[in-house]
Design a binder for these strands. Structure first.
Lengths: 144, 144
DNA sequence: CGGATATTTTACGTTTACGTAAACGTGATG
DNA sequence: CATCACGTTTACGTAAACGTAAAATATCCG
């Protein structure tokens, strides 16, 4: 029998690929977010582990705590079984969706402000005279 | 002469409006993000302060640190003057924009996964049989 | 006027998410 | 065989963002 070709990764491989430290990866394991197999003492990461790491980091970029990410992982693993669990999972998913949609709105708002500020910068640069103060729109950061 | 009707806020008013603690608001001041005037010892917040608070909280929802927000505030306040400052400001703005766009992509990805998970939940619930395991798509969280 | 209520300063405590050694295997390699 | 290069556990340290409690005003209200 041939061993089924299982794609695995070492900790440093993952660390390099995702540009995090091995310390961080071990920490995620400590927090119950990953659990790689072992070959002797060495950690061996599966494709699933890799995917989870990707999700952890994506969550982080969105300001999620490791605890929140873990909750989602756990629910994902255990939710199918009882109806109650499924409904609970759905509630959590809906809540997360609400947060994400709020973030979308926040991003739109910040992008608009960035654009305005950048435009003003370019105007000042083009103009060459570094003296004139911009009239501040009511809701601007540069208010009264 | 009439006093110009200056809209001001107490700390608790702001705290209630934005659903944060007064402690948090004072902390933001400590970190140089706000500086309300004083009437005696009491803090008096202007509309500008209120706007800044709003921006602080928006930044927080997007995972920005107070330090990052402060940097933007400071640049916004001081950038117009020298060309070098303006260009530096533009760099920071571009960088922030990059992060925001990455976040937009992240959000899209997570929303898609949430939708998939929710759909699966609904399918299981509709089906009524709480036993069948879902076949996991390659990049799913529920991989091998 | 005295108690309730709000505000202030000061200061120590807490959680999250790692960083930073130290001290120890272990397999490959010149 | 000694020395890397990589991996492991254990443990203490740290920055961020407040929480929480204490003690001191200040203000309002019946």
């Amino acid at each position: 029998m041939e061993k089924p070709k299982a794609t695995t990764y070492t900790i440093t491989e993952l660390a390099k690929e995702f540009n995090v430290t091995t310390r961080a990866i071990r920490f995620y394991e400590d927090q119950g977010l990953l659990n790689p197999k072992r070959e002797g003492r060495k950690r061996v990461y599966s494709r699933r582990d890799r995917t989870r790491l990707k999700l952890i980091l994506r969550g982080k970029r969105l300001g999620m705590t490791l605890g929140e990410t873990r909750e989602l992982f756990d629910l994902f693993d255990t939710a199918r079984g009882e109806e109650k669990q499924l409904r609970h999972f759905l509630r959590i998913l809906a809540e997360r969706r609400r947060i994400l949609e709020q973030q979308q709105r926040d991003i739109e708002a910040v992008l608009a402000e960035i654009d305005a500020a950048a435009a003003e910068c370019h105007r000042l640069l083009a103009e060459g005279s570094f003296r004139k103060a911009p009239e501040a729109p009511p809701e601007s950061i540069a208010g009264p």
